[in-house]
């Protein structure tokens, strides 16, 4: 870790002002950033601690929730409104990391988690995310946990968050504040695909701070779930995960939300699958068909071809379960 100055911000305005200094970074729970600083992958000169800011979860006028960026993962998973109105979000958070880490990690920090790609972590390896233009050693190396959707020749890494997969399935807006004022970004636009510049992972501008995520009211989310498939029974990142909600009327799919984790550089909203399902019979074969529609674009690597079939099966099984539960 390189030496740095630490300052705890008393307000969002103060945080933004302090972070205007070059090489500043906001510090949340530290569960990812501190590790990355120890690895010298992140090397900020100024750390602005924002954990004390925006720690509230509030109902919005239209029945949604405004979740402060400083809310701890545990607090969000535990909140009665989340448990009853957005169970997929509770379940996704509880599927991630460990009890201790969930007590530390913040909502804002969770959005900014960086990939677990081994070549990103090892400074002996080539990585375009760590050193733009260096090349990518993951393509010909260990890429079991890597992307099958939306990757580029420059980067095949995946986003490791569980919580974000649930958020991707919902109508969520990310609230930002920064030197040039506040703005909002739809959650689906917040994270970027790698393209030619995998070092740029979000639309955050220099000095911008996530202040809240706003979850819009969406009745279909009350019956929703999250399924995570991983290499050990707990405390492991997802190989594939599925967050889904479905509304069925008279045996026909009226509305459906599907997002995938562990398959792409960003939490992956399965728009193609959703489009293929609306108006179709709520049956296993249509679920499978929809999953295949989403995965038609899959481009697996040497070590992760299994994820295509795994994702198709997981999507089908999750939707089957939701429909069965409802019936």
């Amino acid at each position: 870790m390189i030496p740095f100055a630490y300052q705890r911000a008393g307000s969002v305005a103060e945080a933004i002002a302090v972070a205007a200094r070059p090489q500043s970074k906001y510090l949340g729970g530290g569960t990812n950033l501190v590790d990355l600083m120890r690895e010298t992958i992140e090397a900020p000169a100024h750390l602005v601690d924002v954990t004390g800011l925006s720690t509230a979860i509030e109902d919005t006028d239209n029945g949604g929730l405004m979740v402060g960026a400083g809310v701890r993962n545990t607090a969000l998973a535990e909140h009665p409104a989340v448990r009853s109105r957005f169970p997929l979000l509770s379940r996704a958070i509880l599927a991630g990391a460990s009890g201790q880490i969930r007590n530390m990690a913040t909502v804002g920090g969770n959005l900014l988690q960086r990939t677990r790609c081994a070549y990103f972590y090892d400074d002996a390896a080539r990585c375009n995310k760590r050193a733009p233009g260096a090349g990518c050693d993951a393509v010909g190396g260990f890429n079991r946990i890597h992307a099958i959707l939306g990757a580029s020749p420059a980067c095949v890494a995946t986003h490791p968050s569980d919580m974000c997969v649930a958020l991707a399935a919902l109508d969520v807006t990310v609230h930002l504040d920064g030197p040039d004022g506040g703005r909002t970004v739809p959650f689906g636009d917040f994270h970027l695909l790698p393209g030619d510049s995998p070092d740029v992972e979000t639309v955050l501008r220099p000095g911008e701070l996530i202040t809240a995520v706003e979850i819009a009211a969406q009745p279909l989310a009350a019956r929703s779930t999250y399924r995570k498939v991983r290499d050990r029974a707990s405390y492991a990142f997802a190989l594939v995960s599925v967050a889904a909600a479905i509304e069925v009327d008279g045996g026909t799919v009226r509305d459906v939300r599907i997002a995938l984790g562990g398959v792409a550089h960003k939490p992956w909203r399965a728009h193609a699958a959703e489009a293929a399902l609306i108006g179709q019979p709520a049956r296993s074969d249509s679920f499978r068909h929809a999953a295949e529609a989403e995965l038609a674009a899959a481009a697996p690597l040497s070590g992760n071809g299994f994820k295509v079939e795994l994702a198709a099966r997981a999507i089908t099984a999750v939707l089957d379960d939701l429909v069965e539960e409802r019936a």
């Binding site: 081994a118 070549y119 390896a125 050990r232 029974a233 990142f237």
Partner: peptide
Amino acid sequence: DERSGRIMNPSLAEYHVPVHM
């Protein structure tokens, strides 16, 4: 990594040992 002779999961997060569950 058979290309470099480098161990790529030198971590308890990526070298999986059994957990309670």
